[in-house]
């Protein structure tokens, strides 16, 4: 019998450092998720554990269970921006009220600018990855409109957020209308 010559390269002993580290960190996070609310309940006072739990969940999602599909730079900026907004809101609501109306729009337009910067670094490659930027612009415009309807006298960060989102929306539709149409068709398909 002319035997099949099956051979494999010699393997290096692989390092399990990252595997072990990930397991340890998962355990630490799980402990934190249980311990923080417990300690907070026992000691009383401000609800700092809500902020701690949100932070732990973000850490878990970003470093211990990252996206296996579409882990893109614009997507990560979107995630970081969303987390910063959620965490800031929680701090504002539970720990130190009175300033989030000023800070949140700054985070929002900062996120849009950072995403747009990454987008223009390689437009051809990122044209197929425009969706996070579209979401950011839509959410910023929606937030701007909601705030405008509630209190017509807006602070400068909110005006800047609305202007930046509006400008990018107009520019995007004017320059990339076919790419946006194609992107929406793909992203919203139900086949």
């Amino acid at each position: 019998m002319n035997e099949l010559n099956i051979q494999y390269p010699r393997q290096r002993r692989s390092s399990l450092f990252l595997y072990t580290l990930r397991r340890i960190l998962k355990l630490v996070c799980l402990m934190a998720l249980i311990a923080c609310p417990l300690v907070n309940c026992i000691t009383g006072g401000q609800a700092w554990s809500v902020v701690a739990v949100a932070g732990t969940l973000f850490f878990w999602r970003t470093f211990l269970s990252p996206d296996i599909i579409e882990f893109t730079s614009i997507g990560q900026v979107f995630r970081l921006g969303s987390f910063a907004i959620i965490e800031t809101t929680l701090i504002g609501v539970f720990l130190s009220p009175g300033w989030i109306g000023f800070v949140l729009p700054i985070i929002a337009f900062g996120t849009i600018l950072a995403s747009a910067f990454i987008f223009v670094l390689n437009i051809n490659k990122r044209k197929n990855n425009i969706m996070p930027l579209i979401w950011e612009i839509i959410l910023a415009l929606a937030a701007f409109l909601a705030m405008y309807i509630r209190m017509p006298k807006l602070n400068w960060p909110t005006i800047t957020m609305g202007s930046v989102a509006g400008a990018f929306a107009v520019l995007g539709v004017a320059v990339f209308h076919s790419a946006i149409r194609q992107e929406l068709r793909k992203r919203f398909h139900t086949k």
Partner: peptide, 9 residues
């Protein structure tokens, strides 16, 4: 593979 709103594609 990419993520859509309803299905991957």
């Amino acid at each position: 593979v990419r993520k859509g709103v309803f299905w991957h594609y």
